[in-house]
Amino acid sequence: MITKEYTYRLDTIETVAKRLLQSFNSKVILFNGEMGAGKTTLIKSLLKVMGSDDAVTSPTFSIVNEYSTYKGIVYHFDFYRIEDEEEAHNFGVEDYFESNNLLFIEWSERVASLLPKDVCIVDISINSPKERTLKLTINTHNLTENTHAIS
């Protein structure tokens, strides 16, 4: 595993988003952090850097939102409101995991046993009201000579 750490403020979040996109080596990205840590805000910046003009909102009630980017479709999940893994299974989450699309997932611990093995993990910690620390964990077993960053 490789871990990278970034401290950022809201006015530098796009710089961090660009660095993250260059580092991702999986199509499934898990975003962890307490309520209000800025998971959706970071995802919004990632999508903006990827050229999406879509209005990015938290999929808390819809469970999944779909966005168009220059890299294709990105699915953004928020599993905060699901009752159990069976609910995610019933709406076909495995089909999304098997797709070639990029998946951004919030509250992934609620579907832990359904997740694929190859994921990148973004942990966000609150330092102050305007500053966050982000830790990116990359699974090195995904790395090969032919692995290219998602940018």
Rank of each mutant, 00 (worst) to 15 (best):
L115V: 08
S108D: 14
L10Q: 07
L47H: 03
V119S: 07
S128C: 14
H76Q: 12
E98F: 08
L10M: 09
L143V: 15
K130E: 15
P59G: 02
Y67D: 03
A55G: 05
E14M: 10
E5P: 00
T41A: 14
L42F: 06
K44H: 13
L114P: 06
F79I: 05
I124R: 03
M1K: 00
G51W: 02
D118N: 14
S128H: 08
P129W: 07
E85L: 05
D53G: 13
Y75C: 06
N101M: 07
N90A: 15
V93E: 01
V74F: 03
I73H: 00
E145H: 14
N127Q: 15
K27S: 05
E106G: 01
N139L: 13
I124P: 03
R110V: 08
I2P: 00
H148A: 12
L103F: 06
E83S: 09
S58N: 10
N32Y: 04
R132M: 07
S128K: 11
R19D: 06
V56Y: 10
V111F: 05
K48I: 06
V74M: 04
S125I: 04
I2M: 08
E94T: 13
T69Q: 01
V93K: 04
K71Q: 05
D84G: 09
L47G: 01
N127S: 14
K39M: 06
L46I: 12
G72L: 00
T41V: 10
E86Q: 11
T144L: 13
Y75D: 03
F77A: 09
D78Y: 11
E83M: 11
E109G: 11
T60I: 14
K130D: 15
L30K: 06
G92T: 12
V122D: 02
D123N: 15
L30F: 00
G92D: 13
P59C: 13
K117I: 10
R132E: 10
D123E: 15
D54W: 05
